[in-house]
Design a binder for these strands. Structure first.
Lengths: 180, 180
DNA sequence: CCACCCATGTAACTAGTTACATGATTTC
DNA sequence: GAAATCATGTAACTAGTTACATGGGTGG
Protein backbone atom coordinates (compact mmCIF):
# COMPACT_ATOMS: atom_id res chain seq x y z
CA UNK A 1 0.00 0.00 0.00
CA UNK A 2 1.75 3.14 -1.06
CA UNK A 3 -0.85 5.58 -2.26
CA UNK A 4 -0.14 7.84 0.74
CA UNK A 5 3.55 7.74 -0.16
CA UNK A 6 2.89 8.58 -3.78
CA UNK A 7 0.82 11.51 -2.52
CA UNK A 8 3.52 12.59 -0.07
CA UNK A 9 6.05 12.54 -2.90
CA UNK A 10 3.86 14.66 -5.11
CA UNK A 11 3.17 17.14 -2.31
CA UNK A 12 6.87 17.26 -1.43
CA UNK A 13 7.60 18.17 -5.04
CA UNK A 14 5.10 20.99 -4.88
CA UNK A 15 2.33 21.73 -2.38
CA UNK A 16 -1.06 21.98 -4.04
CA UNK A 17 -4.79 21.30 -3.70
CA UNK A 18 -6.45 17.88 -3.69
CA UNK A 19 -7.83 18.70 -7.09
CA UNK A 20 -4.33 19.38 -8.43
CA UNK A 21 -3.16 16.06 -6.99
CA UNK A 22 -6.00 14.30 -8.76
CA UNK A 23 -4.90 15.91 -12.03
CA UNK A 24 -1.30 14.87 -11.47
CA UNK A 25 -2.55 11.34 -10.88
CA UNK A 26 -4.26 11.56 -14.23
CA UNK A 27 -1.01 12.32 -16.01
CA UNK A 28 2.61 12.27 -14.84
CA UNK A 29 2.40 10.23 -11.64
CA UNK A 30 -0.66 8.44 -12.93
CA UNK A 31 1.43 6.70 -15.58
CA UNK A 32 2.74 4.37 -12.88
CA UNK A 33 0.43 4.97 -9.94
CA UNK A 34 -3.23 5.54 -10.64
CA UNK A 35 -5.75 6.96 -8.17
CA UNK A 36 -9.17 8.56 -8.45
CA UNK A 37 -10.06 11.82 -6.77
CA UNK A 38 -12.24 9.99 -4.25
CA UNK A 39 -9.33 7.88 -3.11
CA UNK A 40 -7.11 10.93 -2.92
CA UNK A 41 -9.46 12.97 -0.72
CA UNK A 42 -10.00 10.02 1.60
CA UNK A 43 -6.28 9.40 1.89
CA UNK A 44 -5.53 13.09 2.44
CA UNK A 45 -7.96 13.07 5.35
CA UNK A 46 -6.14 10.13 6.93
CA UNK A 47 -2.75 11.66 6.30
CA UNK A 48 -3.76 14.92 7.89
CA UNK A 49 -5.10 13.18 11.00
CA UNK A 50 -1.75 11.36 11.25
CA UNK A 51 0.11 14.63 11.09
CA UNK A 52 1.86 13.89 7.80
CA UNK A 53 0.37 16.85 5.94
CA UNK A 54 -1.42 20.05 6.78
CA UNK A 55 -4.17 21.72 4.80
CA UNK A 56 -4.93 25.42 4.94
CA UNK A 57 -7.91 27.16 3.38
CA UNK A 58 -6.74 29.42 0.57
CA UNK A 59 -7.85 33.06 0.94
CA UNK A 60 -7.62 34.35 -2.62
CA UNK A 61 -8.83 31.19 -4.37
CA UNK A 62 -12.23 29.62 -4.82
CA UNK A 63 -14.39 28.92 -1.79
CA UNK A 64 -13.28 25.77 0.03
CA UNK A 65 -9.99 25.45 -1.82
CA UNK A 66 -7.25 24.04 0.36
CA UNK A 67 -3.49 24.07 0.02
CA UNK A 68 -1.90 20.84 1.18
CA UNK A 69 1.67 20.86 2.40
CA UNK A 70 3.94 18.17 3.79
CA UNK A 71 4.98 18.20 7.48
CA UNK A 72 8.25 16.94 8.98
CA UNK A 73 6.51 13.74 10.13
CA UNK A 74 5.37 13.21 6.53
CA UNK A 75 8.92 13.64 5.26
CA UNK A 76 10.16 11.15 7.85
CA UNK A 77 7.49 8.66 6.86
CA UNK A 78 8.31 9.06 3.18
CA UNK A 79 11.99 8.52 3.88
CA UNK A 80 11.24 5.48 6.01
CA UNK A 81 9.01 3.93 3.35
CA UNK A 82 11.39 4.69 0.48
CA UNK A 83 14.36 3.04 2.17
CA UNK A 84 12.52 -0.10 3.25
CA UNK A 85 12.46 -2.93 0.75
CA UNK A 86 9.24 -3.97 -0.93
CA UNK A 87 7.82 -6.64 -3.21
CA UNK A 88 7.80 -5.87 -6.92
CA UNK A 89 4.40 -5.30 -8.47
CA UNK A 90 2.49 -8.23 -9.78
CA UNK A 91 1.65 -8.39 -13.43
CA UNK A 92 -2.04 -8.73 -14.04
CA UNK A 93 -2.98 -8.98 -17.66
CA UNK A 94 -6.31 -10.17 -18.92
CA UNK A 95 -4.94 -10.69 -22.44
CA UNK A 96 -2.92 -13.62 -21.08
CA UNK A 97 -6.06 -15.13 -19.61
CA UNK A 98 -7.83 -14.58 -22.93
CA UNK A 99 -5.04 -16.31 -24.83
CA UNK A 100 -5.30 -19.29 -22.53
CA UNK A 101 -9.07 -19.27 -22.86
CA UNK A 102 -8.62 -19.21 -26.64
CA UNK A 103 -6.31 -22.24 -26.40
CA UNK A 104 -8.78 -24.05 -24.14
CA UNK A 105 -12.19 -23.32 -25.66
CA UNK A 106 -11.31 -21.20 -28.72
CA UNK A 107 -10.88 -19.94 -31.29
CA UNK A 108 -12.43 -16.74 -29.99
CA UNK A 109 -11.31 -14.21 -32.60
CA UNK A 110 -8.96 -12.28 -30.38
CA UNK A 111 -7.10 -10.59 -33.24
CA UNK A 112 -9.40 -7.59 -33.25
CA UNK A 113 -8.73 -6.82 -29.60
CA UNK A 114 -5.00 -7.30 -30.10
CA UNK A 115 -5.06 -4.82 -32.99
CA UNK A 116 -6.78 -2.34 -30.69
CA UNK A 117 -4.17 -2.90 -28.00
CA UNK A 118 -1.36 -2.51 -30.51
CA UNK A 119 -2.68 0.90 -31.46
CA UNK A 120 -2.99 1.92 -27.82
CA UNK A 121 0.57 0.86 -27.00
CA UNK A 122 1.93 2.60 -30.09
CA UNK A 123 0.04 5.74 -29.18
CA UNK A 124 1.36 5.64 -25.63
CA UNK A 125 4.89 5.05 -26.86
CA UNK A 126 4.64 8.06 -29.14
CA UNK A 127 3.45 10.24 -26.27
CA UNK A 128 6.44 9.16 -24.18
CA UNK A 129 8.82 9.79 -27.08
CA UNK A 130 7.47 13.31 -27.44
CA UNK A 131 8.03 13.98 -23.75
CA UNK A 132 11.53 12.55 -24.16
CA UNK A 133 12.29 14.93 -27.02
CA UNK A 134 10.80 17.89 -25.21
CA UNK A 135 12.31 17.41 -21.74
CA UNK A 136 15.39 15.23 -22.02
CA UNK A 137 17.09 15.92 -25.34
CA UNK A 138 19.74 18.18 -23.77
CA UNK A 139 23.31 16.93 -23.66
CA UNK A 140 23.87 17.49 -19.97
CA UNK A 141 21.18 16.48 -17.55
CA UNK A 142 21.29 17.21 -13.84
CA UNK A 143 21.04 14.29 -11.45
CA UNK A 144 17.41 15.15 -10.75
CA UNK A 145 16.67 15.27 -14.46
CA UNK A 146 18.38 11.92 -14.92
CA UNK A 147 16.15 10.39 -12.25
CA UNK A 148 13.06 11.76 -13.95
CA UNK A 149 14.34 10.55 -17.29
CA UNK A 150 14.76 7.06 -15.81
CA UNK A 151 11.10 6.96 -14.90
CA UNK A 152 10.13 7.96 -18.42
CA UNK A 153 12.49 5.34 -19.84
CA UNK A 154 10.76 2.65 -17.79
CA UNK A 155 7.54 3.62 -19.54
CA UNK A 156 9.26 3.65 -22.93
CA UNK A 157 10.90 0.24 -22.58
CA UNK A 158 7.68 -1.22 -21.23
CA UNK A 159 5.59 0.05 -24.12
CA UNK A 160 8.25 -1.00 -26.63
CA UNK A 161 8.21 -4.55 -25.31
CA UNK A 162 4.42 -4.48 -25.37
CA UNK A 163 4.32 -3.34 -29.00
CA UNK A 164 6.81 -5.99 -30.03
CA UNK A 165 4.99 -8.73 -28.18
CA UNK A 166 1.55 -7.72 -29.43
CA UNK A 167 2.80 -7.91 -33.03
CA UNK A 168 4.08 -11.41 -32.37
CA UNK A 169 0.73 -12.37 -30.88
CA UNK A 170 -1.06 -11.06 -33.95
CA UNK A 171 1.12 -13.19 -36.19
CA UNK A 172 0.27 -16.33 -34.27
CA UNK A 173 -3.43 -15.46 -34.21
CA UNK A 174 -3.57 -14.66 -37.94
CA UNK A 175 -1.74 -17.88 -38.87
CA UNK A 176 -4.56 -19.84 -37.33
CA UNK A 177 -7.42 -17.99 -39.01
CA UNK A 178 -5.63 -18.32 -42.38
CA UNK A 179 -5.73 -22.10 -42.13
CA UNK A 180 -9.29 -22.26 -40.78
CA UNK B 1 -12.70 -7.77 -12.74
CA UNK B 2 -11.72 -11.04 -14.24
CA UNK B 3 -10.75 -13.40 -11.45
CA UNK B 4 -13.82 -15.54 -12.15
CA UNK B 5 -12.80 -15.69 -15.80
CA UNK B 6 -9.26 -16.68 -14.95
CA UNK B 7 -10.76 -19.41 -12.78
CA UNK B 8 -13.15 -20.50 -15.52
CA UNK B 9 -10.23 -20.74 -17.94
CA UNK B 10 -8.23 -22.84 -15.55
CA UNK B 11 -11.18 -25.15 -14.85
CA UNK B 12 -11.93 -25.42 -18.56
CA UNK B 13 -8.34 -26.55 -19.10
CA UNK B 14 -8.75 -29.22 -16.46
CA UNK B 15 -11.40 -29.68 -13.76
CA UNK B 16 -9.88 -29.82 -10.29
CA UNK B 17 -10.34 -28.94 -6.62
CA UNK B 18 -10.22 -25.44 -5.14
CA UNK B 19 -6.92 -26.36 -3.59
CA UNK B 20 -5.49 -27.29 -6.97
CA UNK B 21 -6.69 -23.98 -8.39
CA UNK B 22 -4.94 -22.16 -5.59
CA UNK B 23 -1.73 -23.99 -6.45
CA UNK B 24 -2.10 -23.14 -10.14
CA UNK B 25 -2.54 -19.52 -9.10
CA UNK B 26 0.75 -19.81 -7.26
CA UNK B 27 2.60 -20.84 -10.40
CA UNK B 28 1.57 -20.93 -14.05
CA UNK B 29 -1.52 -18.72 -14.09
CA UNK B 30 -0.25 -16.84 -11.07
CA UNK B 31 2.57 -15.34 -13.15
CA UNK B 32 0.05 -12.97 -14.68
CA UNK B 33 -2.99 -13.30 -12.43
CA UNK B 34 -2.48 -13.71 -8.73
CA UNK B 35 -5.13 -14.83 -6.24
CA UNK B 36 -5.07 -16.26 -2.73
CA UNK B 37 -6.98 -19.36 -1.74
CA UNK B 38 -9.47 -17.28 0.25
CA UNK B 39 -10.36 -15.27 -2.83
CA UNK B 40 -10.63 -18.43 -4.88
CA UNK B 41 -13.03 -20.22 -2.52
CA UNK B 42 -15.20 -17.13 -2.23
CA UNK B 43 -15.30 -16.71 -5.98
CA UNK B 44 -16.03 -20.39 -6.56
CA UNK B 45 -19.01 -20.07 -4.25
CA UNK B 46 -20.35 -17.17 -6.29
CA UNK B 47 -19.69 -18.93 -9.56
CA UNK B 48 -21.50 -22.03 -8.44
CA UNK B 49 -24.55 -20.04 -7.32
CA UNK B 50 -24.59 -18.43 -10.77
CA UNK B 51 -24.52 -21.80 -12.45
CA UNK B 52 -21.13 -21.32 -14.11
CA UNK B 53 -19.50 -24.27 -12.38
CA UNK B 54 -20.58 -27.34 -10.47
CA UNK B 55 -18.79 -28.96 -7.56
CA UNK B 56 -19.17 -32.60 -6.62
CA UNK B 57 -17.81 -34.25 -3.51
CA UNK B 58 -15.07 -36.72 -4.43
CA UNK B 59 -15.66 -40.27 -3.20
CA UNK B 60 -12.16 -41.73 -3.20
CA UNK B 61 -10.30 -38.63 -2.03
CA UNK B 62 -9.95 -36.88 1.30
CA UNK B 63 -12.99 -35.92 3.30
CA UNK B 64 -14.60 -32.76 1.93
CA UNK B 65 -12.61 -32.71 -1.29
CA UNK B 66 -14.60 -31.33 -4.19
CA UNK B 67 -14.11 -31.59 -7.90
CA UNK B 68 -15.04 -28.37 -9.70
CA UNK B 69 -16.14 -28.51 -13.33
CA UNK B 70 -17.31 -25.89 -15.78
CA UNK B 71 -20.93 -25.80 -16.96
CA UNK B 72 -22.23 -24.65 -20.37
CA UNK B 73 -23.27 -21.31 -18.84
CA UNK B 74 -19.70 -20.90 -17.59
CA UNK B 75 -18.34 -21.59 -21.05
CA UNK B 76 -20.73 -19.03 -22.52
CA UNK B 77 -19.72 -16.46 -19.96
CA UNK B 78 -16.02 -17.09 -20.61
CA UNK B 79 -16.57 -16.72 -24.34
CA UNK B 80 -18.58 -13.54 -23.82
CA UNK B 81 -15.91 -12.01 -21.59
CA UNK B 82 -12.99 -13.04 -23.80
CA UNK B 83 -14.47 -11.47 -26.91
CA UNK B 84 -15.46 -8.19 -25.29
CA UNK B 85 -12.83 -5.47 -25.29
CA UNK B 86 -11.20 -4.37 -22.06
CA UNK B 87 -8.82 -1.76 -20.70
CA UNK B 88 -5.16 -2.72 -20.51
CA UNK B 89 -3.75 -3.21 -17.04
CA UNK B 90 -2.33 -0.24 -15.25
CA UNK B 91 1.29 -0.22 -14.27
CA UNK B 92 1.79 0.29 -10.58
CA UNK B 93 5.38 0.40 -9.53
CA UNK B 94 6.59 1.73 -6.22
CA UNK B 95 10.18 1.98 -7.48
CA UNK B 96 9.04 4.85 -9.69
CA UNK B 97 7.56 6.62 -6.70
CA UNK B 98 10.79 6.00 -4.78
CA UNK B 99 12.86 7.47 -7.59
CA UNK B 100 10.73 10.58 -7.57
CA UNK B 101 10.95 10.76 -3.80
CA UNK B 102 14.72 10.47 -4.12
CA UNK B 103 14.73 13.37 -6.56
CA UNK B 104 12.48 15.44 -4.29
CA UNK B 105 13.84 14.81 -0.79
CA UNK B 106 16.81 12.48 -1.45
CA UNK B 107 19.35 11.06 -1.70
CA UNK B 108 17.79 8.04 -0.04
CA UNK B 109 20.30 5.33 -0.93
CA UNK B 110 18.06 3.39 -3.28
CA UNK B 111 20.88 1.45 -4.94
CA UNK B 112 20.65 -1.44 -2.49
CA UNK B 113 16.99 -2.05 -3.25
CA UNK B 114 17.63 -1.78 -6.99
CA UNK B 115 20.38 -4.41 -6.67
CA UNK B 116 17.90 -6.67 -4.92
CA UNK B 117 15.34 -6.10 -7.63
CA UNK B 118 17.89 -6.77 -10.34
CA UNK B 119 18.62 -10.15 -8.83
CA UNK B 120 14.93 -10.96 -8.60
CA UNK B 121 14.29 -10.04 -12.21
CA UNK B 122 17.30 -12.02 -13.39
CA UNK B 123 16.17 -15.01 -11.37
CA UNK B 124 12.67 -14.78 -12.80
CA UNK B 125 14.05 -14.45 -16.32
CA UNK B 126 16.16 -17.55 -15.84
CA UNK B 127 13.14 -19.51 -14.64
CA UNK B 128 11.20 -18.49 -17.74
CA UNK B 129 14.14 -19.38 -19.99
CA UNK B 130 14.28 -22.83 -18.45
CA UNK B 131 10.59 -23.35 -19.11
CA UNK B 132 11.18 -22.14 -22.66
CA UNK B 133 13.93 -24.70 -23.19
CA UNK B 134 11.92 -27.47 -21.62
CA UNK B 135 8.56 -26.89 -23.27
CA UNK B 136 9.02 -24.92 -26.45
CA UNK B 137 12.36 -25.83 -27.99
CA UNK B 138 10.77 -28.15 -30.56
CA UNK B 139 10.83 -27.08 -34.20
CA UNK B 140 7.15 -27.49 -34.88
CA UNK B 141 4.70 -26.23 -32.32
CA UNK B 142 0.97 -26.78 -32.53
CA UNK B 143 -1.28 -23.73 -32.52
CA UNK B 144 -2.14 -24.34 -28.87
CA UNK B 145 1.53 -24.62 -27.99
CA UNK B 146 2.23 -21.41 -29.85
CA UNK B 147 -0.43 -19.62 -27.81
CA UNK B 148 1.08 -20.90 -24.58
CA UNK B 149 4.53 -19.92 -25.80
CA UNK B 150 3.24 -16.41 -26.46
CA UNK B 151 2.22 -16.06 -22.84
CA UNK B 152 5.64 -17.18 -21.70
CA UNK B 153 7.28 -14.77 -24.14
CA UNK B 154 5.32 -11.90 -22.62
CA UNK B 155 6.91 -12.78 -19.30
CA UNK B 156 10.34 -13.07 -20.89
CA UNK B 157 10.23 -9.74 -22.71
CA UNK B 158 8.84 -8.06 -19.62
CA UNK B 159 11.61 -9.35 -17.38
CA UNK B 160 14.24 -8.57 -20.00
CA UNK B 161 13.12 -4.97 -20.19
CA UNK B 162 13.06 -4.86 -16.39
CA UNK B 163 16.63 -6.16 -16.11
CA UNK B 164 17.88 -3.71 -18.70
CA UNK B 165 16.11 -0.78 -17.09
CA UNK B 166 17.21 -1.66 -13.56
CA UNK B 167 20.84 -1.73 -14.70
CA UNK B 168 20.41 1.72 -16.18
CA UNK B 169 18.87 2.94 -12.94
CA UNK B 170 21.82 1.56 -10.97
CA UNK B 171 24.23 3.46 -13.18
CA UNK B 172 22.45 6.74 -12.55
CA UNK B 173 22.24 6.07 -8.82
CA UNK B 174 25.91 5.11 -8.50
CA UNK B 175 27.06 8.15 -10.45
CA UNK B 176 25.52 10.36 -7.80
CA UNK B 177 26.98 8.59 -4.80
CA UNK B 178 30.43 8.67 -6.46
CA UNK B 179 30.35 12.44 -6.61
CA UNK B 180 28.88 12.90 -3.13
C1' DC C 1 -27.19 32.11 -19.52
C1' DC C 2 -25.06 27.89 -20.55
C1' DA C 3 -21.33 24.92 -20.67
C1' DC C 4 -17.10 23.80 -18.88
C1' DC C 5 -13.60 23.59 -15.53
C1' DC C 6 -12.39 24.17 -10.60
C1' DA C 7 -13.02 22.14 -6.14
C1' DT C 8 -14.81 19.52 -2.61
C1' DG C 9 -16.76 15.62 -0.69
C1' DT C 10 -20.21 11.13 0.80
C1' DA C 11 -22.07 6.47 0.12
C1' DA C 12 -22.19 2.06 -1.51
C1' DC C 13 -20.06 -1.50 -3.57
C1' DT C 14 -16.33 -4.72 -5.30
C1' DA C 15 -11.90 -6.73 -4.98
C1' DG C 16 -7.86 -8.11 -2.51
C1' DT C 17 -5.20 -9.15 1.86
C1' DT C 18 -4.30 -10.96 6.44
C1' DA C 19 -5.44 -13.55 10.29
C1' DC C 20 -7.79 -17.27 12.20
C1' DA C 21 -9.65 -22.00 12.26
C1' DT C 22 -10.23 -26.97 11.49
C1' DG C 23 -9.27 -31.61 10.37
C1' DA C 24 -7.62 -35.58 7.33
C1' DT C 25 -3.70 -38.03 5.10
C1' DT C 26 0.83 -38.96 3.91
C1' DT C 27 5.84 -39.20 4.85
C1' DC C 28 9.77 -39.59 7.69
C1' DG D 1 4.11 -39.75 16.58
C1' DA D 2 5.45 -35.34 14.56
C1' DA D 3 5.78 -32.56 10.61
C1' DA D 4 4.43 -31.52 6.09
C1' DT D 5 0.94 -31.32 2.79
C1' DC D 6 -3.89 -31.71 1.34
C1' DA D 7 -8.23 -29.53 1.76
C1' DT D 8 -11.73 -26.61 3.23
C1' DG D 9 -13.51 -22.51 4.92
C1' DT D 10 -14.90 -17.75 8.01
C1' DA D 11 -14.05 -13.01 9.65
C1' DA D 12 -12.19 -8.68 9.59
C1' DC D 13 -9.84 -5.35 7.36
C1' DT D 14 -7.77 -2.45 3.56
C1' DA D 15 -7.76 -0.68 -0.99
C1' DG D 16 -9.97 0.60 -5.23
C1' DT D 17 -14.15 1.73 -8.14
C1' DT D 18 -18.59 3.73 -9.35
C1' DA D 19 -22.32 6.57 -8.51
C1' DC D 20 -24.12 10.51 -6.44
C1' DA D 21 -23.99 15.33 -4.83
C1' DT D 22 -22.97 20.27 -4.47
C1' DG D 23 -21.58 24.76 -5.67
C1' DG D 24 -18.47 28.69 -7.35
C1' DG D 25 -15.94 30.96 -11.29
C1' DT D 26 -14.76 31.74 -16.20
C1' DG D 27 -15.42 32.15 -21.19
C1' DG D 28 -18.16 32.29 -25.07
Amino acid sequence: MSLPHALLTSIAEKPCSGYDLARRFDKSIGYFWHATHQQIYRELGRMESQGWVISTEVEGGRAGKKLIDILPAGRDELRRWATESSAPMRLRDDMMVKLRADAAIGPLGLAEEFERRLQMHEQELQTYREIEQRDFSGVLLSHEQQLRYLILKAGITFEESRVQWTKEALQVLSKKSATD
